[in-house]
Design a protein around this nucleic acid. Structure first.
Lengths: 369, 369
DNA sequence: TGATGGGTTGAATCCATCT
DNA sequence: TAGATGGATTCAACCCATC
């Protein structure tokens, strides 16, 4: 048993144009160290377009490559490309897949059925997600990555535990990552000024995955290369890549992009994450934490105004209900108010500003923010 | 078609001891408003126990109820209990399931296959997760909840958008929730001082789900009741519950726990009215009430566009006639427009938004109704 | 040169009611 | 039951023009 690396030459640092399953099947077995895959998400959007509150149209993903007739056909497709990946993976290689709730459960199940061994699921928390315009659901503010080894017996996979910890205030890197969307200069634009690819991933996301789970010189395969974020980051970080992309337009854009990437020096490969701004704390969290009870009465410092805390983290005065800020502004007749510094809870016979509890929660959040 | 609620009595605010599938099948179809399920996670732990760096043993979940011989048997079990849930759900009921990467992909796929419609996946970010002692993976710092309606056609599900927003700094609630683990006094301990249940969920997590997706008086079913966090929170928040638990020890602990819960006052439970629940007011009523005269000229706020009020409650620009919305969209070249907030009447030399008159009429309707 | 404000945009399973 | 219509709904980041 075991894999015998083929002597066949690998198409390193190239973009292959074509169907990813056929292209992978043409590669030698057991030849890549890592796979990063961003497959179609199988979004099932209705016919009507979604309008923002200002009546502008949301530019949805409606490309042909995201169309599947049923869950069954999506599952078949998923098993096929995952199987092809598994064949070309070295025994200790790992696989990353990114997706949303539309497809990630199908992908995760297929992975497990094929014998992959899930090491973590990772949550990419978006700094600036698209809002939910109709107010019918929670803001869809994250995507999920699955990190898996080739099998449960693959114990020798690469994981740079110490490096990640060192870059994270000496705390273990958690499974929830806070990273902005790909915008600005990083977002590839065509001659018409429009985005080249509808779902270009941020380089920071790829950088963290490749720094975590590969070594310099490792070969990273991306079967859904798109505009080549995986290749650009691999080159910058001193890794080799194999990209496969069906659409010539994307492949061309990827090649041009990667040609412009300057590799980092070996010494500078680990980057500390940027300092975060103070994490926002919902007043609801203060209630949930039990610092302030639902039903409790808050006042201003001089006890001129009163309002009752509701279990949903709003304040109420009789029938009037709103956020701590809204109600604070209302009672004072002001256009705005910082509820955190305005409202107080009775503690030991004296009013304690509720901002004290926010500070406490932030300390508890620590590096988790 | 449609569900006809059975006259059969529901076992409200009770803990049923037994197999959840059999127990659910004995309930009338279409009878519950919400399901919260925390099924066995199908953890695949080796025989050897995990040791902390100080050689103490980690108290892992190794109970018999979490043993499944294969993915196939777990999938069968999952489909069965999900189907039983779906039968007892009202058409607009929603289902919550919590899990980790060990089982959530199986559960999510089964959900979709059975016709549930996923509304969100929610990430519970743990404030104080267990570290990864071996340093072989990322700290597993989150669990995933899936929120789904009974079918894609179930558009009338409950979601308290405004209340959640008010409790969250007046920002939409996101899909990533930061909540501490269940520890301290909240964690049920036996006479021996050990925790009663290995996976007791924090009340804050249940509170947020029930406040989001149920109304006071709604019936919440929990087929894996454990030590009754769902029941305790439901009682506190003025919801009814049906708990099903196989282990007598857990059921007894749950009953004792829930008996000690003091419900919040009715007043603090009232949810913020959704704006769309406000009664519809025809623009014609504003004209009929004399607030705006037929023949009067309306403009936008900056007086760029003009239109004349007709006695039938439409607007006209020359020969073009239509509703306040149609004409507002037309002059702006937009696909749609809310005429109530777009059009203004000249009052005291300044433009007054016509929505003010709708508010006034609604207040009058409230007094009359 | 820096501050400010307007405009644009991001993998979206995003309406309710009446005729 | 399908089609028409009323009308409710957004947050963070970045670009750019203007002050």
């Amino acid at each position: 048993m075991g894999f015998v690396p083929s002597q066949q030459r690998l198409p390193l640092d190239e973009v292959l144009v074509g169907d990813c399953i056929a292209a992978m099947n043409a590669l030698p077995a057991g030849s890549v160290d890592c796979v990063f895959a961003d497959p179609p998400y199988n979004l099932q959007l209705g016919e009507a377009s979604l309008l923002r509150p200002d009546q502008s149209r949301v530019d949805a993903v409606d490309d042909a490559w995201d169309k599947f007739s049923s869950f069954a056909s999506y599952d078949t497709f998923t098993r096929e490309w995952l199987s092809a990946c598994r064949r070309v993976m070295k025994p200790n290689a790992t696989l990353w897949v990114i997706g949303s709730y539309h497809n990630i459960f199908r992908v995760g199940s297929a992975l497990q059925d094929l014998g992959f061994w899930i090491l973590n699921d990772i949550v990419w928390r978006k700094a600036n997600p698209m809002p939910n315009f109709r107010g019918k659901r929670f803001t869809n503010a994250h995507e999920t990555l699955i990190w898996a080894s080739r099998s449960a017996e693959s114990k020798g996979y690469t994981f740079h535990y110490e490096a990640l910890k060192g870059g994270n205030e000496d705390l273990q890197m958690r499974s929830d990552w806070f990273i902005p969307l790909c915008t600005g200069d990083e977002r590839l634009k065509g001659a018409d000024g429009h985005k080249v690819h509808p779902t270009q991933k941020p380089e920071a996301l790829l950088a963290r995955t490749l720094l975590s789970a590969t070594n310099p010189g490792d070969v990273v395969l991306d079967p859904f290369f798109g505009t080549g974020t995986t290749g650009a980051v691999a080159k910058r970080l001193g890794r080799r890549f194999i990209g496969i992309e069906r659409e010539t337009v994307y492949a061309e854009a990827a090649r041009a992009r990667i040609a412009g990437v300057v590799p980092l020096s070996q010494a500078s490969l680990l980057v500390s994450p940027a300092k975060r701004a103070e994490p926002r704390v919902p007043f609801l969290s203060v209630v949930e934490a039990g610092h302030i009870r639902a039903g409790e009465v808050l006042t201003d410092e001089r006890r001129r105004f009163k309002a009752t805390v509701r279990p949903d983290g709003q304040l109420g005065i009789g029938p009037v209900v709103g956020s701590i800020h809204k109600i604070g502004a209302l009672v004072q007749g002001l256009p705005a108010c910082n509820g955190w510094t305005f409202w107080h809870a009775e503690r030991g016979g004296k009013p304690l500003v509720i901002d004290a509890y926010r500070t406490e929660l932030r300390a508890a959040m620590g590096a988790a923010g």
